[in-house]
């Protein structure tokens, strides 16, 4: 398996854009710089509604988890959100143990995550 594949797909929920980021492979100290570059580029372009699909992620290191927390704070400060979907059990266990799952919401499917992002927007209006 290639070390890390990143596929980004723009979509809309309730008339507002969401970037779906589908990740496959592993994010460790070797592949992290590319992950950081792609994610920071999205946020710096003004994409504050992010859905990370982790279904095919085999490993995620602490630095990548730290970046997710940093981005989560950044998008929230800009009235956006960062959620994750289809999290493998092994990674979900790490997110739970570190308390990250209390902040970054996880969903069983991309569809559920998109619905939640739309609902959250409704509640803010």
């Amino acid at each position: 398996m290639k070390e890390l594949r990143i596929a980004t797909e723009p979509t809309e929920t309730d008339g507002r854009s969401v970037q779906i980021v589908r990740l496959a492979g592993y994010i460790d100290a070797h592949s992290y710089p590319r992950f950081e570059e792609e994610m920071l580029a999205l946020v710096n372009q003004g994409h504050y509604r992010l859905l990370l699909d982790l279904h095919e992620v085999t490993y995620i290191c602490s630095t990548a988890l730290g970046l997710m927390l940093q981005l989560f704070r950044q998008v929230r400060q800009n009235a956006g959100d960062l959620v994750v979907a289809r999290v493998p059990e092994k990674i979900a266990n790490i997110l739970n143990l570190l308390g990250i799952s209390k902040l970054i919401r996880a969903f069983r499917s991309e569809q559920e995550a998109l619905q939640c992002l739309a609902t959250a927007d409704e509640q803010r209006r």
Binding site: S62, G66, L69, Q70, R73, G99, L103
Partner: peptide
């Protein structure tokens, strides 16, 4: 504090 601040250092 780490999670709340979004500070990555120390999690490892």
């Amino acid at each position: 504090e780490v999670v709340g601040s979004g500070r990555a250092r120390g999690i490892g």
